[in-house]
Amino acid sequence: MNTPAVLQPVRVWDLPTRLFHWGLALAVAGSVISAKIGGGAMVWHFRFGYVVLALLAFRVLWGLVGGRWSRFASFVYAPTTLWRYLQGRAAPQERLDVGHSPTGALSVFALLAVLAVQLGTGLVADDEIAHQGPLFMLVSTDNSLAATSWHKTWGQWMVLGLVALHVLAIVFYLVKKRINLVRPMLNGDKSLPPDTPASADGRTPRALAAVLLAACGALAWWVSKQGS
């Protein structure tokens, strides 16, 4: 008779990653809502955009030096690995469901890429009425208008679509697989075999994250001052 594996809490999502996740969610929501309101709320649309800039820049850096399961190296999968995962043939020692699974990784990279494009087009946008991105002078008028059109239409809908898919995936895992993906992003831990490597989440990595975030915030502030 096989003895069931004993599971224990393992730190998967370090605090900087969790704060990034929820901060980005709030910033994107604020950006969308303020854009829909328009008028005087556009000031906040730009402010939320600069927050998104700082957070995305931070995530790129943290993907290189952050906790084990937050690093890009832990969830950049080969096509063959993705295919085996979809077929349910992943080996337990691969630990594909500890951090971002192969399908979850695709979702993460897609959302980050679409947000980066949406941010970039917003920075060079010009509605020819009252609002211009701080970097609009770096591109031609035609390119600025094309960026503005994308930002207001396809870009916006792609962001909303990916966010909706993200939420639906969370609901699917909770209802169909009885796996709560939200709780670990709140407390950082998952119930896993005791030999699962944990992410470093002590004072030193948190201090490093604070320094990196401050630098990214300074970058966003500098960008906001261009064109003024």
Rank of each mutant, 00 (worst) to 15 (best):
residue 59 R to K: 09
residue 3 T to C: 07
residue 130 A to L: 11
residue 52 V to T: 04
residue 179 I to Q: 12
residue 216 C to R: 08
residue 71 R to P: 01
residue 156 Q to L: 14
residue 32 V to Y: 14
residue 65 V to D: 10
residue 127 D to E: 10
residue 208 L to N: 11
residue 181 L to E: 04
residue 129 I to H: 03
residue 173 Y to G: 09
residue 227 G to F: 00
residue 16 P to D: 07
residue 99 G to A: 04
residue 47 R to H: 15
residue 100 H to P: 06
residue 204 T to F: 12
residue 209 A to V: 09
residue 21 H to G: 08
residue 194 P to E: 12
residue 165 L to E: 05
residue 198 A to Y: 05
residue 226 Q to H: 11
residue 190 K to Y: 01
residue 97 D to C: 07
residue 8 Q to A: 15
residue 160 L to Y: 04
residue 69 W to I: 00
residue 200 A to G: 10
residue 26 L to V: 15
residue 39 G to K: 09
residue 14 D to S: 12
residue 201 D to L: 04
residue 35 A to W: 04
residue 67 G to V: 00
residue 99 G to T: 00
residue 16 P to Q: 10
residue 192 L to R: 09
residue 128 E to N: 02
residue 197 P to H: 03
residue 196 T to H: 06
residue 211 V to C: 14
residue 121 T to P: 00
residue 192 L to A: 05
residue 41 A to P: 03
residue 197 P to N: 08
residue 25 A to F: 12
residue 88 G to N: 08
residue 69 W to V: 00
residue 173 Y to R: 03
residue 102 P to N: 01
residue 12 V to G: 00
residue 47 R to W: 14
residue 133 G to H: 00
residue 36 K to E: 15
residue 132 Q to A: 13
residue 152 K to A: 04
residue 21 H to I: 07
residue 217 G to A: 11
residue 188 G to W: 04
residue 206 R to H: 05
residue 47 R to P: 02
residue 119 L to Q: 06
residue 18 R to W: 07
residue 191 S to Y: 13
residue 212 L to H: 09
residue 95 R to L: 09
residue 10 V to L: 11
residue 45 H to L: 06
residue 173 Y to N: 07
residue 105 A to T: 05
residue 119 L to H: 07
residue 190 K to M: 06
residue 26 L to N: 08
residue 44 W to C: 02
residue 96 L to Q: 00
residue 157 W to F: 15
residue 17 T to K: 05
residue 146 A to F: 08
residue 48 F to G: 00
residue 164 A to K: 05
residue 122 G to L: 04
residue 99 G to L: 00
residue 23 G to K: 09
residue 15 L to T: 15
residue 227 G to R: 06
residue 181 L to P: 03
residue 68 R to Y: 04
residue 124 V to C: 01
residue 144 S to V: 02
residue 218 A to F: 04
residue 151 H to G: 03
residue 199 S to M: 12
residue 13 W to Y: 11
residue 113 A to S: 11
residue 91 A to T: 06
residue 78 A to V: 05
residue 127 D to Q: 09
residue 22 W to E: 12
residue 38 G to E: 07
residue 148 T to R: 08
residue 196 T to R: 08
residue 216 C to E: 07
residue 61 L to C: 15
residue 129 I to N: 03
residue 49 G to M: 03
residue 15 L to D: 01
residue 189 D to W: 06
residue 94 E to S: 08
residue 210 A to R: 08
residue 117 V to D: 02
residue 89 R to K: 12
residue 63 G to R: 07
residue 25 A to W: 07
residue 174 L to G: 02
residue 218 A to R: 12
residue 172 F to I: 08
residue 130 A to Q: 07
residue 40 G to Q: 12
residue 214 A to D: 12
residue 206 R to G: 03
residue 103 T to Y: 04
residue 56 L to F: 10
residue 206 R to W: 05
residue 98 V to N: 01
residue 63 G to Y: 04
residue 192 L to N: 06
residue 36 K to P: 02
residue 88 G to C: 10
residue 120 G to I: 01
residue 185 M to I: 08
residue 199 S to L: 13
residue 7 L to K: 14
residue 142 D to W: 10
